[in-house]
Design a protein around this nucleic acid. Structure first.
Lengths: 108, 108
DNA sequence: AGCAGTACTCGGTATCACCGAGTACCAGGA
DNA sequence: TCCTGGTACTCGGTGATACCGAGTACTGCT
């Protein structure tokens, strides 16, 4: 699949929130998860910028833990604000997809 | 519904393509159509920038016609390149929505 | 020692939707 | 006559976001 980056604007952050929300995890693993999910071109740098932003916006709780194979990992978990943000993300997603599907059906 | 703009990046252009593809029409009417479809906050300036971009990228054929009530209208119709672009837009859309739905189901 | 895999950082770029102010044309009412 | 409101398009600038690319650092294996 060719370049999806423009269409991922705004949704990729939601995906990362969802992944963090379902399990406390860290950047490198999140990137792998996104890749195996089908977002093959998403690269580490992108995920880390999202992670930094989430942290800056106070949506996650961060815990640093040693790794065993490599430098220490920064584990991310959602806090209350993060869970709330995730919920609004899904609400927006539902809204947009429903409208676009309607448009696609040639609907009024 | 609160601010959707980030999530519309990349998809709004596709919506405009779809609208033009189903009927030769002009900027002001496209804006109204988007508004009544549920994209309430989309404003004329946004649509016109998209239209200019489509024209610049050679995806549309433009015809100017007098209006009767107001200044002349610029009617837009898809050409072959535009129809092709619209098809790839829908392909990308299908792809992304399917992946995100999978993620949402907690799927592997 | 050197290499590959893991793991995070950071400055810069392009694209896109949005903002806001401006221009222009026409109809009907005060 | 003026002026308000609806129609219709233009354009320079802004902010958010994903991407790029290069760099740093730690570990285990050969």
């Amino acid at each position: 699949m060719d370049d999806l980056t423009e269409m991922l604007k705004g949704t990729l952050e939601g995906c990362v929130l969802e992944i963090i929300g379902s399990e406390e995890t860290y950047g490198y693993a999140i990137t792998r998860r996104l890749n195996e999910l089908g977002f093959a071109d998403v690269v580490e740098g992108t995920v880390y910028t999202i992670l930094l932003r989430l942290e800056k916006n106070g949506l996650v709780q961060v815990t640093k833990r040693p790794s065993g194979l490599g430098p220490p990992r920064k584990f991310y978990a959602l806090n209350d604000a993060g869970r709330k943000e995730l919920a609004t993300f899904w609400a927006k997603w539902e809204y947009i997809t429903s409208r676009i599907d309607k448009l696609k059906e040639g609907g009024k």
